[in-house]
Design a protein around this nucleic acid. Sequence first.
DNA 1: TTGTAGGCGTTATCAC
DNA 2: GTGATAACGCCTACAA
Lengths: 337, 337
Amino acid sequence: MKVAPTIRDVARLASVGVGTVSRVLNDSVRVDPATRERVLAAIVELDYVPSAIARGLSTGRTGAIGVVVPFLTRPSVVERLRGVEAALSQSAYDLVVFNVETEERRKTVLRLLARGDRVDGLIILSLSPHPGELADIVRTGIPTVLVDAHHRAFSRVVVDDVLGGQLAARHLLELGHRRIGFLGDDPQERFKFSPSRLRRVGVARALRAAGLELQPGYVRTGGFPRETARRIAAELLALALPPTAIVCGSDVEALGVLEAARQAGISVPGRLSIVGYDDIEIAHDLGLTTIRQPLVESGRRGAEMLLEAMDVAERPPVRVLLQVELVVRATSGPPPA
Amino acid sequence: MKVAPTIRDVARLASVGVGTVSRVLNDSVRVDPATRERVLAAIVELDYVPSAIARGLSTGRTGAIGVVVPFLTRPSVVERLRGVEAALSQSAYDLVVFNVETEERRKTVLRLLARGDRVDGLIILSLSPHPGELADIVRTGIPTVLVDAHHRAFSRVVVDDVLGGQLAARHLLELGHRRIGFLGDDPQERFKFSPSRLRRVGVARALRAAGLELQPGYVRTGGFPRETARRIAAELLALALPPTAIVCGSDVEALGVLEAARQAGISVPGRLSIVGYDDIEIAHDLGLTTIRQPLVESGRRGAEMLLEAMDVAERPPVRVLLQVELVVRATSGPPPA
DNA sequence: TTGTAGGCGTTATCAC
DNA sequence: GTGATAACGCCTACAA
């Protein structure tokens, strides 16, 4: 339980003042090469590492970047987080993860963060805070980037979810489907903002463009976690006239549908086509047709934008739009004759 | 960019000394109910939240727990991390994630952590630091728990990987297999300690008990990431007399084998049986026969043990052994006639 | 170029 | 009970 050496120890050993040590540490201003050498030697000798906390108290910065995520259980969130981590590991910042699974915890966490001295920068992933909370964050002046969430006041990286929904529906329409359903998240569960809802809007729009309607009876929400999606899909498939194709708000929900179909003995894509959303890794493994969005990339870009914004002060928010893309695999085909 | 109120502001507003405010904050000793009320009111009035950093500098604690993980890309690691998070979110500690993908970064991170004031507690996941690094950590006195890693000096939660390997092999032997192969990690990649290697030992042991040998020609390592596993498996399957069953060091590698079999037109389990290890979520989806170990649970237990250890000082290290279990699904069956 | 001292926001140790 | 005040370890003017 030895105590770590302080800057004072280094100064003493190198026969210099603490100021000088601090200077070589932060290579600010000019330090005589000779003394710099002495200091460096002392640092090595003592195996000295500066105290992050003390430095933080003094500079007002923490050396940490916070990432607020909902549901670490969702593969899409994890992939985004991985992108964030990849970018941050190139920097000197620590990555502090705030997982938020309930409204209450979201409030607690954001209030904490709004203190302004907990983290130097903030990434909010797939989560739309309330206006008041956002205002608090703006007020602190903490550089913040949103990933998979929209707000004019912040830099953000997003995709066009309406377009994604359209791509999915068009694909099915081209295959000849007419009875197309949608299974997505419960909007309220995602704290107001809901990509899932936008995807549904896209589906509806594509159908309308084809002279069809997205039947209310074919739309179901509340699809997380997968087990719930499976149950809901089973209901959908048990209809007298079930849809011949289902677009899902996420790949995880698509897996639930896939399972429901298997249990009901409905062949995919023979009698039912399924299109997911996200293209998480497992989608590839299972041959799921889906709408791909660059998940890892979104996290990486978000983190990079944040790091930049933290260097240069006060830049106007930018909006980065990543592309979605249809990936046809084995769960979509022509409707049954 | 307003400045956050300090304890001094609260003290002034409540007409008390900072000491008193600090006391009600940490409800240490007794404070007169009346003054306590005044202080509380001032706190609310100013929307005051104590500075974590300042408190940290003063108390020597950070309010953060560090988790060192290798390869955030591995599903098994992510599931364990999720368990850690679940336990920690019940506490007041922040979760700082240190992802370590290279030898160098491991050194950097552990050196940083060895400073002793970066985090209050440490969880090391699926990663075996070098003896010297461990010694540094012991010296700092930071409460530390190992998950999926072994060392007498630390509390740890582990499974019996040799047993796991045995279970896998016995299952295949009982099905009638005689030509059994093993595909696992490259031991060096995991920084010396290698669960994968222990699993292989288990397989070899089970074969020997049945009067067989694990043929060197049937053993391949270097199976991460999955694409590599696929390629290696393809070699194995291209042998003149290929194995009729392959035990894998992880589910991810098993997926690679599965893919190789598919590409080679080899039916599973008709002509090839595959057993994975871990039982990550996707294993269920793909019907992979595997050895289950409680991943999320391991993280949760580790975090709980750490929290306890941080309360009570100086307890001797304990070793928690979680159970492994064979889960038979659709990728294992009798060998071809 | 370099040393000294004040300050960052708390907690904890004193007297009162 | 409560109010000063000295740490905590560092950074950064300010002086020298």
